[in-house]
Amino acid sequence: MEAKEFYFYVLLCADDTFYGGYTTEPERRLKEHNDGTGAKYTRVRSRRPMRMIYTEAFETKSEAMRAEYAFKQLARHEKMVFLKKYM
């Protein structure tokens, strides 16, 4: 059986806000967000379209969820500093 990877990801929304989440399939999840069937936050029409600007793979779901939680605790300027390292 192939090992499953878990991803923490960040979306840049059309209204210039960030959304962080976790998934096992980043491409599918981005499509769900852009189709309006993803998270409640991304269902708002003014936030679409979104683009995935960051992904990081983890071996376990809990690691990916920890990364998501840590990102969501940051202030906007701290999120921008974090993302700037990878863009």
Results as ranks from 00 to 15, higher is better:
Met1Val: 12
Ala3Ser: 14
Ala3Val: 14
Lys4Gly: 07
Lys4Pro: 09
Lys4His: 09
Phe6Thr: 08
Phe6Arg: 07
Tyr7Thr: 09
Tyr7Asn: 10
Tyr7Cys: 09
Val10Tyr: 12
Leu11Val: 03
Leu11Phe: 13
Leu12Pro: 03
Leu12Cys: 06
Cys13Leu: 15
Ala14Ile: 05
Asp16Ala: 09
Thr17Ile: 04
Thr17Asp: 10
Phe18Gln: 03
Gly20Met: 01
Gly21Ile: 03
Gly21Met: 05
Pro26Cys: 00
Arg28Tyr: 12
Arg28Phe: 09
Arg29Trp: 10
Leu30Trp: 00
Lys31Val: 14
His33Phe: 05
Asn34Gln: 06
Asp35Arg: 11
Asp35Ile: 00
Thr37Ile: 15
Thr37Tyr: 12
Gly38Leu: 11
Ala39Thr: 12
Lys40Asp: 13
Lys40Arg: 15
Tyr41Trp: 15
Thr42Asn: 15
Thr42Glu: 13
Arg43Phe: 11
Arg43Gly: 12
Ser46His: 07
Ser46Met: 05
Arg48Gln: 15
Arg48Gly: 10
Pro49Tyr: 00
Pro49Gln: 02
Met50Ser: 14
Met50Val: 06
Met50Phe: 02
Arg51Trp: 06
Arg51Gly: 04
Met52Cys: 15
Ala57Pro: 10
Ala57Cys: 06
Phe58Asp: 01
Phe58Arg: 00
Glu59Ser: 11
Thr60Tyr: 00
Lys61Leu: 08
Lys61Val: 03
Ser62Asn: 03
Glu63Pro: 01
Glu63Arg: 08
Ala64Asp: 00
Arg66Cys: 01
Tyr69Cys: 03
Phe71Glu: 00
Lys72Gln: 08
Leu74Gly: 02
Arg76Ser: 08
Arg76Val: 11
Glu78Asn: 09
Glu78Asp: 12
Glu78Pro: 06
Lys79Ser: 05
Val81Arg: 14
Phe82Leu: 14
Leu83Val: 07
Lys84Ser: 15
